[in-house]
Design a protein around this nucleic acid. Structure first.
Lengths: 189, 189
DNA sequence: AGTCTTTATGCAACTAGTTGCCTTAAGGAG
DNA sequence: CTCCTTAAGGCAACTAGTTGCATAAAGACT
């Protein structure tokens, strides 16, 4: 279970409120472990209860904003967790299940032909989404990991590791686009 | 939610008992949508209640084996579901979260250096797992999708589509291995 | 001042997935 | 003919994730 540790990591990179965290989960760390604001607020409450983070109300701001920051015990927990052996999560891809479902429908039958046409469109649509994500990642790589980039504060995270994570995103999105290009002709009649 | 449809698909490919389905979920369809035997039995009960599949006790067999088969209403439901637009599930990869966690630990500090060493080993281990999965897929591709393969019964699933699904597995595992090879040097000191 | 909108937080109820243990029934070993 | 093992099915309790809605506080609109 990685959500509390994803939150600890994100707070260790930069403290902030629940809403700010939720925004970061819509990009950055959330590209590899997403969460809704509900999950985030619940985890923040649990983490504070366990003494791993602390919070304080922020004045002169909208809503009831609170700032969260990691405590030393939180960093220890993070260090403890990262070194545990963990197997990769199995893949879950509904589109591949759907393709197999279409494979059992007779081509030539009405539902089979409709399904094939829809899947062709879906595949093209997904290709577009993955390509978009890909160029987003490539943009980040260009912005953050080129020669004259800033971030020379004392708490600098290891840029090489951050880049490696980004590269993973790039390679998987690229693989997805390549697969779609290879597969689309199969669905053309 | 794809589990009931993954089960319908699997039963449409070939009827069988809950235990047989569970075995198929450990390979084949389960490579893209896994489930435990508990989930499978529960879903089978629900699907039968909804009138999408039927079951019959099988005699002269161990345990209380029942055979399940898809009913026409089940095929209709499957056709209905496949043509719904569905966005890709976001990626969830704990190893990438862990790498970001390591990135915020100071290299040179004891926990930071330990974590880097452990992650190097973990990355190598995961690379091995993915390479194993890759050659498994490549084996299946060689066995099932070469010239003189059997399967000419009337209910033949579309082999081109089944192959496309398998190719997705191959390309993603390959991407994983490639990324690991690119990233491992970053963790060498 | 009063209403409307936006931001931030949160509760409650639900669905999905996991884990540990248990029962039923057959096959085989002594 | 009992005991042990294996296969098949399942209950109960738990953890994780989702959804819909509610509340609080600040700013904008009139």
């Amino acid at each position: 279970m990685s959500l509390p540790h994803a939150i600890l990591t994100s707070l260790a990179e930069k403290p902030g409120s629940g809403a700010e965290l939720a925004q970061r989960f819509d990009k950055s760390i959330g590209y590899f472990w997403q969460a809704t604001h509900q999950q985030i607020y619940r985890e923040l409450a649990r983490l504070e209860e366990r003494g791993l983070i602390r919070s304080a109300a922020r004045e002169a701001t909208r809503g009831r904003k609170r700032d969260y920051a990691v405590l030393p015990a939180g960093l220890e927990e993070l260090a403890r967790w990262t070194v545990l052996a963990q197997d990769p999560l199995p893949v879950r891809d509904a589109l591949l299940v759907r393709l197999r479902a279409v494979a059992v429908m007779r081509a030539g039958s009405a539902p089979g032909d409709t399904a094939r046409a829809v899947m062709r469109a879906e595949l093209a649509r997904h290709r577009g989404l993955h390509e978009q994500q890909l160029s987003l990642y490539q943009g980040v790589e260009g912005d953050d990991f080129t020669a004259g980039s800033g971030a020379q504060a004392q708490n600098t995270p290891d840029l090489r590791l951050q880049r490696a994570v980004l590269r993973a995103g790039i390679m998987f999105e690229q693989a997805w686009v390549n697969w779609a290009d290879e597969t689309l002709p199969t669905l053309e009649h």
